[in-house]
Design a protein around this nucleic acid. Sequence first.
DNA 1: GATGAATGAGCGTTCATTCAT
DNA 2: CATGAATGAACGCTCATTCAT
Lengths: 191, 191, 191, 191
Amino acid sequence: MAKLDKRDEIVRAALELIAEHGFHGAPMAMIAERASVGAGTIYRYFENKDVMITELFREIEERNYPILKAGYAPDQPLRERFFHLCTALMHYFIENPLDFRFIEQFFNSPYGVAHRRDKLLGTKEGCDVFKELFEDGLSRQVMKDLPLVILFDLAFGPILAVARDHILSFIVLDDVLIARTVEACWDAIKR
Amino acid sequence: MAKLDKRDEIVRAALELIAEHGFHGAPMAMIAERASVGAGTIYRYFENKDVMITELFREIEERNYPILKAGYAPDQPLRERFFHLCTALMHYFIENPLDFRFIEQFFNSPYGVAHRRDKLLGTKEGCDVFKELFEDGLSRQVMKDLPLVILFDLAFGPILAVARDHILSFIVLDDVLIARTVEACWDAIKR
Amino acid sequence: MAKLDKRDEIVRAALELIAEHGFHGAPMAMIAERASVGAGTIYRYFENKDVMITELFREIEERNYPILKAGYAPDQPLRERFFHLCTALMHYFIENPLDFRFIEQFFNSPYGVAHRRDKLLGTKEGCDVFKELFEDGLSRQVMKDLPLVILFDLAFGPILAVARDHILSFIVLDDVLIARTVEACWDAIKR
Amino acid sequence: MAKLDKRDEIVRAALELIAEHGFHGAPMAMIAERASVGAGTIYRYFENKDVMITELFREIEERNYPILKAGYAPDQPLRERFFHLCTALMHYFIENPLDFRFIEQFFNSPYGVAHRRDKLLGTKEGCDVFKELFEDGLSRQVMKDLPLVILFDLAFGPILAVARDHILSFIVLDDVLIARTVEACWDAIKR
DNA sequence: GATGAATGAGCGTTCATTCAT
DNA sequence: CATGAATGAACGCTCATTCAT
């Protein structure tokens, strides 16, 4: 097993167990076993559990990003771009429930708060299509004149909530329902 | 110190610490110390930590509920009722940030999921103004024809997200901003 | 409730709970509740749990003693006296399983060892019919010339074991079986 | 220190402390300290305290069994076989007082009762020489026609009691005294 | 005297992290 | 490099005992 294989196995195992049982229900020893790796080996790749979780989130983000961008045309109307991104995001969540559950846990934790702060303050590299989209919508006066943060919340709040309810089987989403949910989010932010 | 004082101290300490550090970051010993109480004393009032958390949530709900209902007139138009409830909710969250953070933690945990299931299935006593409001809106065709769950998510997703961002100081809400946020939520759910 | 009633209630409750659950399965609070008495009240009658247990044993012994003596005629032959005492003892155990279970627990604990030491060394008052019986048997050369302790063990070892097996339902004793068991014990000690 | 050394140290420490102070007087932390081992280390070898105790008993049994069997000839007369086994048992107890005290504690506990039930019902594999011996004695009408359980009690009751009294220094056994005690037990069970 | 709420040391157990092999 | 046995601080919880009322 090559070095990268080991790291990948650890990441996969950690994602599975954390998604299923939460941060506190996924001991390092259990992650190591699931990854078929020695417990100490994890610490060759990650300084400690916190670092592992943070990097895990970053990897999920990176995996997610190209999927959102695929077929995304910056020259389309704002509405179409918003629909494209939101629909892609919902599909991604539904098809990758482990990723979704992990992201949820992550946001609802001190890590998530720090991450959000970095994002909003623009400290992180500007790879954020959504931010560009909303800023574009604001400057063209297509979207409501609200702080960027609130526009985010109006769009992502429902998207995350609906995805969670689907994954928890409170509803069963299909393409029609997804489209109409995104439409409703658009109604919330558009002027 | 009277008996009720002691219980109150425990409840206050638990709320503070759980709001600040989460369930796992608030050991019973720390709660006891913050409440100026022996570790064993907590167990005179709550069977175990899980029960304490559940009961704490119930108490917050009971504290919150009359505030939402105050000034609520069921004979007003749907839009006004929606505004009243959402505005009251946001004010409650902003003025009781500990309650808000606790509720957030609670919903993002197995307790919360079970609670949500009960609510949606109507197992719990029908004291839910919001559910009535949305069902009313659906039957009068004022709101979009979407599953109840999704209507909930379209309204509460943003409300919770915005309240959190205020409490975490990502934005500073005022009455105008609150009104415009609630307005945007209304746009999301209304036909 | 008079003072003695309270003490009696405590003693009764302690006996029941210790017999059923052992020393460590019978917390003072539980004993107090069963006795319908405040937890602190127990400490008015007994210095601490150890003292309570020791006194409880003494009371059982005192209750038991007259039963053994009833109908006991010191002028009968040794064999008859042995039969009388052993049969009475077994009946007592069978009819008072709580007492038996308590005695068992007691003997199998540091208390029991100390008690046995006192008994054998004759430190305790000489109210012991059995001791007299065996010493009589030895001096008349009816019994095997073995140390007193071993004669005790040859008689009581089986008696206790058989009583326990009856109480635990491994066997069902009747008068015939009791008689034949005592007979066998007599065979063990007689010359 | 090799892996097995560590386990052995734990077993030794647990045996010593439980023999001396009983199950409840031997906390895991104390066992760990006596074994010069971290508290958590014990749990690498035993799932929990109950399992540790059960396994400890099993190990003692396995250590004891071959000693009883050594020099045991199934074709000898019943009386000789009984003497052989009982004498070997007493020597084993006297030379391994820790084992003896542990076994005593074990039998006088819920574990012991369950174990005895299994033994009597023959649920456990039939490696029980004593059971065979008594059944043989019954069918050949050498022993008294009593339930198997009572025969056990008549033999082991005194053996255990005498061994305990020796270990507690109430008597000092020698070969002669052992022989005469076993003889007395034989008198109890033989016709 | 009687109470029972309060205490806190002590229990069995877990798990992130280390380090000898 | 990789391992996994070892660690021990920290956890949730219990209960004998005390003491203000």
